[in-house]
Design a protein around this nucleic acid. Structure first.
Lengths: 352, 352
DNA sequence: TATGATTGCACAAACGATTGTGCATAAATA
DNA sequence: TATTTATGCACAATCGTTTGTGCAATCATA
């Protein structure tokens, strides 16, 4: 028997010969404020429980102008890096009794635009936005209209919105220093999507680290155009057919590394011996590869949590100054980088 | 300048000296039905565009009793297996102009109960539910109240709700046949969470495959109690310290496999040589391990898509008979299983 | 016994959209 | 010209909540 007539305040009110307002007040804990007798209170609560009353959040939100909902816009939820962030966002939001509407933009700016519009149409109170990152025009609205939003991971230079991201520059800088300290000088950089901030910052870190060690960067060693594994594979094959002298690969994402590794295996190159590799984004499996891959880990969980926290600060206090946060990365040394010459050890400190 | 007074139908109506109803009808394409002059139509459209009118979906949903929203309840969105399903659910839902409210239950039945309640309170039109899977009491409500829902991955025996899952039995059966055909007889089964349907079906497939080959199953070779990597590690160490004769490990999830692999490496056992391993859930990285791991792949994307499709069938036609779907798995042969004896090759067909 | 304070609740207006019905004015027909 | 029909829109109810205000009935006080 489907109970098709859903329970509302009205249902309860009628059964008890009360008004909806009274019922509402009781269930919202405003009994004292409005002097509802404890007999009535009990009756209302009992009936609500008996009928399994679930308040209609739509009506509530409409009236209150508060939806207790955040929008989460993400380029690809199946990417573990993003999924980890999504998880901590959801958990942190739930702690505040907020729900998450999820939009996967499939790395398409068009879908991103549509998603933001949709979410605003659904009256989310704020947005956690992981932008595709190559365009920002559509986001300036958010800025000018002062809509609560926190940008995560990829931020956009000409946009003054609060963001939280890894300190990609520093992470890359340190990683390359590590390579150099292991006597690598011919280091290829397998980059992700050019024009996106993590990529640009990492490339910059790569270049600066080289220069800090008086190694003239060879721009031809910077290859690639996406964070995916196919790029890693293609570029590695291409590169090694041209530049046989490369001794190390610096992959700017774990997927790129995965592709590169496949190429290396096909080329019968032993990782950590014939060629070294080091990549961004630690993932559980990287510790189990043979050899285990040395990585630059990002604090994904912290990133999500912090984003939500910054967003709530905006919601609570509209005049708060917009903060930007760069989270430190963590270098995880494993066995994929060979020390070419144990003698040589330089000091290494970043420029910025 | 924050435009704090948001644009509503009223705003447009006032500016044009029209009624809200007229504006609403124009924007909903009912101009002809209600004979709105084309001059008025144009004016309304222009003004809506000029003011960047975004219809308040709350109000709309409340009135229409349709939220165009589905709830997605998932045990752990950071698990790539679930994340892939989530992605295809989101994409398929969006194709139908539906949004997804995401709830991560953190593998807790309690949070699952709370989530279902919350989502119903938010008036989602249906649920895609990946249950924690060991309790079903709280889900019988959905059944008796005839609330649209599709269960994914883990289904519950005493619950008559439509589900979509992999054919775990067949997948496991085939996998074990493969092991047996490679002359393994001492095969350990590193299981996931007992009591959950995928686990039970896989274990059943494992047992049946052994018996089909006249190998008496040793129940002591079935170990473990969770889908995580720690279990894989612990159980593998424990097992190999007791049962040195085991020649192959059948891991019921990729994370379990990962843990097992770590243990094997620590024990200086060469995978595919000293010991063989085979696992459920293909993931990109498994092809890049050394050696590449042979797996039973599940059609995650298809699972998500199908779940949404079944849900929409329910929404469209309430009298439709509830379908259950088992998707075939795909065996992916790589190099982690050694053929102990090239001579021996048995025929192998499943019992069910 | 008036008067005032207190108790306990109901009425009604919002929130922003949709939609059945009604009512002018204009055009078409008799 | 009188009547019908068509045109073009407005009015008001509704979805389920929340909340400011009002108003009886009861109680305490003078």
């Amino acid at each position: 028997m489907a109970k098709k007539t859903l329970t509302t305040l009205q249902t309860i009110a009628e059964r008890l010969h009360l008004s909806v307002s009274t019922v509402s007040r009781v269930l919202n804990g405003k009994s004292n404020q409005y002097r509802i007798s404890s007999r009535t209170q009990q009756a209302v609560r009992d009936m609500a429980c008996q009928l399994d009353f679930k308040p209609n959040q739509l009506a509530r939100s409409l009236r209150l102008r508060k939806t207790q909902t955040l929008g989460l816009v993400i380029p690809d939820i199946s990417n573990p890096f993003f999924a980890q962030i999504a998880r901590s966002v959801e958990i942190e939001a739930r702690r505040h009794r907020y729900s998450i509407i999820l939009c996967d933009t499939q790395e398409s700016t068009e879908l991103e635009i549509e998603s933001v519009r949709l979410l605003r149409s659904r009256e989310v109170e704020g947005l956690i936005l992981l932008p595709v990152g190559q365009q920002s025009k559509h986001l300036t609205n958010l800025q000018t209209e002062d809509f609560p939003v926190v940008i995560v991971d990829r931020f956009l230079p000409d946009l003054d919105l609060p963001y939280v991201a890894s300190n990609n520059y520093r992470g890359a800088y340190d990683a390359v220093c590590y390579l150099v300290n292991h006597s690598h000088t011919k280091i290829a950089c397998l980059q992700g999507l050019p024009g996106t901030s993590p990529n640009e910052r990492r490339v910059r870190g790569y270049l600066d680290a080289l220069q800090a060690h008086n190694i003239a960067p060879d721009l031809d060693l910077i290859r690639g155009d996406s964070y995916g594994s196919q790029t890693g594979y293609d570029q590695t094959r291409q590169l090694l057919s041209e530049k046989v002298s490369v001794t190390a690969l610096f992959a700017l994402s774990n997927l790129i590394a995965l592709g590169a590794i496949r190429a290396l295996v096909e080329l019968n190159l032993r990782i950590g011996e014939d060629i070294s590799i080091l990549c961004f984004d630690d993932q559980p499996y990287l510790a189990y590869m043979d050899p285990p891959i040395t990585t630059v880990d990002q604090q994904n969980t912290e990133m999500g949590r912090l984003a939500v926290r910054l967003l709530f600060e905006q919601l609570a206090d509209e005049t708060i100054e917009k903060k930007n946060v760069l989270l430190p990365t963590k270098f995880i040394e494993r066995k994929s980088v060979k020390n070419l010459c144990l003698e040589r050890r330089n000091k290494c400190t970043p420029k910025h």
